[in-house]
Amino acid sequence: MTDLYWDPIAPELRDDPYPLWRRLRDEAPVYRNDRLGFYALSRFDDIELAHRDAETFSSSHGTTLETMAPDPYDTAMIIWLDAPKHTTLRKLVSRAFTVRRVTMLEERIHEICAQLLDPQVGSGGFDYVQDFAAILPPTVISILLGVPGSEREELRHIVDNVFHMEEGVGMNNETSLAALGELGQRLGAHFADRRTHPRDDVFTDLVNAEVADEVTGEPRRLTDEELASFAILLFSAGSETVARHLGWAASALDEYPDQRAELVRDPGLIPGAIEEILRYEPPSPVNARWTTRDVTLPGGTIPANSRVILITGSAGRDERRYADPDRLDVHRKLDLHMTFGYGVHFCLGAALARREARIGLAETLLRWPQWSVDRARTDMLYTSTVRGPLRLPIRV
């Protein structure tokens, strides 16, 4: 198996990693990369187990290959935390995605879609990602958080720089790190404003929130670092992955025009189609964990204190779990996929992301029952954790 090589930073894998991931599932389900010093899991059952066992597969050492460190991070970034601190802070972040707040956004999402899509009617074509998919989610998450409209476009491009990729180092580069710092500074400034000018938004909720101090047990307010970390996570995750997912929806349905026609005839199929597209082309197909003990799986043993990559994108194409997995099927009955994670780290924004995707796709199909993607001019965004169209010109 000397010719079997995979790593999440290699640029040649950005276009079609699925044949290689199939080989990993078949030949090396517990894959070892000696060059970069990590293991990789590619089968559905193994990745589901890793998500369920958060005590063994820890997030506290980082969740991307280039950020992982031998010692746990002393951080307020919730995705890099384990219980009990993760549990405490997760309850706070969940306030951003209450049923009331997400439901209230329904009509607003329809309005934003109309504002973005209506000007393209009769245009002959436009960039589905840059002119629509990449604008909708940061607009929605900005409304939820309380970011004013005057800042949204600039912040969206700062997030683009956070996901800047450089060969050999991934997102651990000056552009990405500087953008991360700037995003935290810009968003963090809103918390100072909410202390004196409270509003009905998530920034205000977080400023007023109290948690139990880890040492004394006494109630305390969140620190500036914790507030900035929450804001970075909510804004960047709420912007980037939904943009990629909507891009994948437009791309995949162009490859399956018969199924697109079915969605036009029966919009009731759209929620199921969204789940199938999430399985078929997950916007975040790679995540990482750190083992706290030796783990023995059917494909081999992973020692304690190892970096482990969970290839979610491979899990979604595992023929051991799904019949004919390399085919998009909007009628597929999905009881579970790993695209939003699983267990204690299940994506907090999943309900909002599904709502944005469902409405965005429905509004698109309402205006254009057909479109064609200009594949020659399509550009991909590929990092060690995110993969999807960055520019997707379509003819309508």
Rank of each mutant, 00 (worst) to 15 (best):
Met165His: 15
Val93Ala: 14
Asp34Leu: 13
Thr296Ala: 11
Leu155Gly: 00
Leu206Asn: 05
Asp3His: 04
Leu297Ala: 00
Tyr280Ile: 05
Asp294Lys: 12
Ile109Lys: 01
Ile302Arg: 03
Glu174Asn: 11
Asp213Phe: 11
Gly238Leu: 04
Asp160Trp: 13
Ser123Val: 03
Leu206Trp: 08
Met380Glu: 06
Gly341Lys: 05
Gly272Asn: 07
Arg186Glu: 01
Met380Lys: 03
Ser236Met: 12
Thr339Gln: 10
Trp368Leu: 09
Pro257His: 06
Tyr322Glu: 02
Glu27Trp: 06
Phe191Glu: 13
Arg327Ser: 13
Arg375Cys: 07
Arg293Leu: 15
Ala249Gln: 15
Ile135Phe: 00
Gly349His: 05
Glu107Arg: 09
His164Leu: 11
Gly217Arg: 09
Val202Ala: 12
Leu297Phe: 01
Val159Gly: 01
Ile143Tyr: 05
Arg186His: 05
Thr291Val: 05
Gly349Ile: 08
Phe126Asp: 00
Arg317Val: 12
Asp15Gln: 15
Val215His: 12
Trp368Phe: 10
Met171His: 13
Arg395Pro: 07
Thr56Ser: 04
Leu41Gln: 05
Ala96Asp: 01
Met104Ile: 14
Ala83Gly: 07
Gln370Leu: 11
Ser239Ala: 09
Cys113Ser: 01
Ser314Glu: 04
His190Leu: 15
Arg156Trp: 12
Leu144Glu: 04
Leu269Trp: 00
Ile141Ala: 06
Glu218Leu: 15
Arg391Asn: 10
Leu180Gln: 13
Thr88Glu: 14
Pro267Glu: 00
Asp118Lys: 02
Leu222Phe: 10
His61Phe: 01
Ser150Val: 09
Pro285Met: 07
Arg194Tyr: 07
Arg32Asn: 04
Leu136Thr: 00
Trp6Pro: 06
Gln115Asn: 09
Leu366Tyr: 05
Asn33Lys: 03
Trp6Ile: 05
Thr204Gln: 09
Glu214Ala: 13
Glu151His: 10
Asn172Pro: 14
Glu55Tyr: 09
Ile79Gly: 12
Glu363Met: 03
Arg194Gly: 05
Leu206Ile: 08
Glu166Asp: 14
Met104Trp: 09
His190Asp: 07
Arg101Glu: 04
Pro389Ser: 03
Glu214Lys: 08
Thr56Ile: 03
Trp6Cys: 07
Ile359Glu: 02
Glu167Pro: 15
Gly125Glu: 03
Glu255Arg: 09
Gly62His: 08
Ala179Gly: 04
Arg332Gln: 00
Gly313Cys: 10
Gln259Glu: 03
Leu13Lys: 15
Thr204Pro: 08
Thr175Phe: 08
Asp74Met: 12
Asp200Gln: 07
Leu116Ile: 04
Ser176Arg: 10
Gln130Ser: 12
Gly360Cys: 04
Asp318Pro: 07
Ser314His: 10
Gly146Val: 06
Leu116Tyr: 02
Arg195Ser: 10
Thr98Tyr: 12
Pro325Cys: 05
